[in-house]
Design a protein around this nucleic acid. Structure first.
Length: 507
RNA sequence: GGCGCGUUGGUCAAUCGGCUAAGACGCCUCCCUUUCACGGAGGAAUGACGGGUUCGACUCCCGUACGUGCUACCA
């Protein structure tokens, strides 16, 4: 099976894994699995200056949390190892050299200062960004502009150089994007991109083509921001003589900021109060933390489902999809072309849906840490009951504590003001008397408790509506929670009496 | 500035020339609930603009506008 589908996610290990990155992974994964193909994780660490320790491990952990595990990766290995470009460094020079030999690339000896100078002197109102291209390359220090002797001399002296692609002046390039259809470029407007840096490392442009070729990648999905450099890659596939093996491309739409405009960035999260990364990421250099969906209390399945729907839909009314269903139904052709503004409210809605549908035992294990973190000890059975009672009103995992803490401990404070608003002596009397009655209540369940409550009400000549709310606040602390008599049943007779007493003392 | 890509309600979006333009989130109203939610029933809200093509254009074409991306020895 030489035409087996092979896709790759190729992040650079420079920081946390962004929402959009996860979506790119997801679409890669879905496509691969749908075609019985392989999903490869390749680390693009060709920029040594931007290397951040821990970033690669973090990415691997994110994929694991999301349930999108690669078939081949630096950790797992595979037939095309190594999967880190820094470890493949020695492979790239040969191809760069081949391009120089065939006249499609050249040595450039320009220093940073010289490049800077060229740009500033040529800069004008009509040309804000002068490029290193056909119009300027003859004025620079490179193996095209210089004589053969000069080049040899520079090379022999060990002058640092880069290898740049020689973009043809007049050539229209076309390719068919799986999402956008035919796209064309004029090569005269593309600059002579650096292929091999002075440190011997390839740039993304060379590395992506060489590795996609060597790793037999059949389909390449990446963010829309890569579209403008597609002509460079197209030409490289052609110049290297691999045109027939070039993967089919799909450029995914961007995920935009919910307010204003532009790509969603990690800074937007804190600003607007939602996570942007899959998991918490702390930059080891700045100690700055960017928050993740996992820590915010999202279920990975919901997170994935939400991302799948951000830019793709099945064309039906179905919105909730398991990973398997996504694998079955996903199609790259149905991916939307335009960027999508991220909507955190909708993201929360997905999580709520998943919490409601989740198996009780599974939910208990997920919720438990949030309870034990508060110093509470409980049993799975009790927790399961609580979870069953409150999950309707829980959207994110931490909500279980917010909505159900009173099942586990006496509330630290109660909404006294809400009780006092309509408080009266006869109400205090009611509660004092009712506690006494409760002492002798033999059968402690919500029905018997409510019955006794009703009877006491009659004796005191009070209306149920006048007492229900105070009772709730005494037991719960505020105006929320499931049925108040069920709560009384759950926390037990002693605790119920105790909470009523406590409340009476502070009113 | 140049080039690429995009443009259906506030947001995600269906529609592949027949539209009285789905659905979801959010919002509003009502019902249910002697709390808060869940749930149920309603409601407000959409084709950027201008030209073509066509019996017919949200759908095709061309302009314009707007948005967005790129324009590094970063990916």
């Amino acid at each position: 099976m030489s035409n087996k589908v092979r896709v790759r996610f190729a992040p650079s290990p420079t920081g946390g894994l962004h929402l959009g990155g996860v979506r790119t992974v997801l679409y890669n994964y879905l496509f691969a699995k749908q075609h019985g193909g392989d999903f490869i994780l390749r680390i693009e660490d060709t920029d040594q200056n931007r290397y951040v320790p821990g970033a690669e491990e973090y990415i691997v952990n994110c994929l694991q949390w999301c349930g999108l595990e690669p078939d081949e990766s630096p950790q797992k290995g595979g037939p095309y190892a190594p999967y880190r470009q820094s470890e493949r460094k020695h492979m790239y020079y040969e191809y760069a050299q081949k391009l120089v030999d065939s006249g499609h690339a050249y040595y450039a000896f320009d220093t940073t200062d010289e490049l800077e100078k060229m740009r500033t002197t040529l800069q004008s109102a009509t040309n804000t960004n002068p490029q290193y291209d056909y119009s300027t390359r003859m004025h620079m220090r490179n193996s095209i502009a210089l004589s053969k002797e000069e080049v040899v001399e520079l090379l022999e002296k060990g002058t640092p150089y880069v290898i740049r692609i020689k973009m043809p002046q007049i050539k229209e390039l076309k390719f068919t994007d799986m999402i956008r259809g035919e796209i064309s470029f004029d090569t005269a407007l593309v600059d002579d991109k650096v292929l091999l840096k002075a440190d011997g490392m390839p740039t993304y442009h060379l590395a992506v083509v060489v590795d996609d070729y060597l790793m037999k990648i059949t389909h390449a999905f990446r963010g829309e921001e890569w579209l403008p450099s597609a002509p460079v890659h197209l030409l490289l596939w052609e110049y290297l003589g691999w045109k027939e093996q070039m993967p089919r491309w799909a450029h995914l739409p961007l995920i935009l900021k919910p307010d204003g405009h532009g790509k969603l960035s990690k800074r937007d999260g804190d600003r607007l109060g939602f996570p942007v990364f899959a998991m918490n990421w702390t930059d080891p250099r700045t100690n700055e933390t960017v928050h993740g969906f996992r820590e915010r209390g999202f279920l990975p399945e919901a997170f994935i489902n939400m991302l799948a729907m951000l830019g793709w839909n099945a064309g039906t009314e179905q919105e909730i999809f398991s990973l398997d269903e996504l694998v079955q139904q996903f199609s790259i052709e149905r991916v939307h072309k335009g960027g999508a503004k991220f909507d955190f409210e909708k993201a929360k809605w997905f999580n709520h849906q998943y919490i409601q549908r989740m198996d009780s035992a599974e939910l208990v294990t997920l919720v438990k840490p949030y309870i034990t973190d508060k110093g509470i000890t409980t049993t799975d059975e009790y927790l399961a009951q609580v979870v069953g009672l409150i999950k309707d009103r829980c959207t994110l995992l931490p909500d279980f504590w917010e909505q159900g803490h009173f099942f586990f401990h006496t509330p630290d404070s109660i909404d006294v003001a809400a009780i006092k608003e309509k408080w009266a002596d006869n109400k205090a009397q009611f509660f004092t008397q009712w506690i006494d009655v409760l002492k002798n209540l033999s059968d402690w369940n919500h029905t018997s408790i409510e019955q006794s409550f009703n009877e006491q009400l009659q004796q005191n000549g009070l209306k149920k509506g006048d007492i229900m709310l105070p009772l709730r606040i005494m037991l719960v602390g505020g105006k929320y929670g499931p049925g108040v008599f069920t709560i009384a049943e759950m926390i037990g007779k002693d605790e119920t009496s105790k909470r009523i007493n406590n409340a009476l003392n502070i009113i």
